[in-house]
């Protein structure tokens, strides 16, 4: 009763208050999600003395400001950044392309029992990679070199004299192996992303194309592929961040210092110089830069990729 008889103005006031409360909570959320990043950014511009003496999230004072940490971090990480790009870009493109092809063959062309294959492949998304690490190391460092050595020295023995060995310690080869590994493990998630997209494409349109005389390949090339371009953007963005951010596979597959990727170099930086937080924070920001840029420019696509994982 009392609420109804109250001045309508106070009701509006009440709504205003709850709106203000809502925005206060949302702003607190911003602080919560940003403070570790903000702290890192502030710290990377501080001198050793300054970051010990000041509050971490405060900006550096005039005499406590330095670019030295950033320079050190950049010089340490730069080769890693380049290696990461060399490794991640082809892996991402391959995964996306394979994912699109797989999803096409398992969705747009429909046949009995295909869902079984879909489950089989999609389960691969959820595998803890520890379960494949030892065989992976064995495959790239034992089985494949042995096989290739045997093959090359048998077939081309006249030229190699039986002395050819697979250059196991070649840095670029290790990067290539890492790239192929990522491409293979990226297929399941890319397939899932493309499959949910292809399910939304009208069956009648595909039937129309079949009646128009298009072959399965021609339908893919002329219809599915052009229509998938937005989905390629989503998949490439999402998968690139996943591959770039990974540390585990790199730890196992790349041991030549010259071919270490950015995450490996950052991990080494963090573990090594314990007290130079300005340098390690600068390292974190530099290592995060490619994915941060991608995220800022293509946030929408990244969010779609994230949501597609369910």
């Amino acid at each position: 009763m009392s609420t109804e008889s109250r001045n309508p103005l106070s009701k509006i006031q009440e709504m205003e208050n709850s709106r203000i409360g809502l925005y206060a909570v949302l702003l607190f959320g911003l602080v919560f999600y940003l403070f570790p990043v903000e702290t890192a950014v502030m710290t990377m511009f501080k001198t050793q003395q300054s970051f010990i003496e000041t509050v971490p999230f405060a900006p550096p004072s005039a005499d406590g400001f330095t670019l030295e940490a950033l320079t050190t971090a950049w010089n340490t990480l730069r080769p890693g950044l380049i290696n990461s790009m060399i490794m991640a870009i082809p892996a991402t493109i391959l995964s996306a392309l394979f994912g699109s092809l797989t999803a096409y063959g398992l969705t747009t062309i429909s046949w009995r029992g295909q869902v079984g294959v879909v489950v089989f492949i999609i389960a691969g998304i959820f595998i803890p990679y520890q379960a494949v690490l030892v065989p992976l190391a064995q495959f790239w460092y034992q089985i494949l070199p042995d096989l290739l050595n045997g093959f090359v020295n048998t077939v081309f023995g006249f030229a190699t004299g039986g002395n050819w060995t697979y250059p196991i310690r070649n840095g670029y080869l290790q990067l290539f192996q890492l790239s192929v590994t990522h491409a293979a493990y990226g297929i399941p998630i890319c397939t899932l992303l493309f499959r949910s997209y292809y399910q939304s494409i009208s069956d009648e349109m595909i039937e129309a194309a079949r009646l128009d005389g298009a072959t399965a390949f021609s339908i893919y090339k002329n219809i599915i592929l052009p229509l998938s371009l937005p989905m390629f953007a989503v998949t490439l963005i999402y998968q690139f961040t996943q591959v770039y951010n990974d540390l585990l596979f790199a730890l196992v597959l790349v041991n030549e210092p010259s071919s270490q990727v950015a995450t490996q170099r950052l991990a080494a930086l963090t573990g090594g110089v314990v007290q130079s937080f300005n340098t390690t924070m600068a390292g974190a920001i530099v290592a995060a830069l490619p994915t941060l840029l991608v995220y800022i420019v293509f946030g929408e696509q990244f969010a779609k990729g994230v949501a597609g994982e369910t």
Binding site: Y33, V37, T39, T241, T263, T280, M281, T291, F302
Partner: peptide, 21 residues
């Protein structure tokens, strides 16, 4: 976008930041 941002970062990057926090 900002709430989702940490997810775009590598574990290695976030671990580095949190070790400082």
């Amino acid at each position: 976008t900002i709430y989702l941002l940490p997810m775009a970062l590598s574990f290695v990057v976030t671990a580095t930041m949190w070790s400082w926090v």
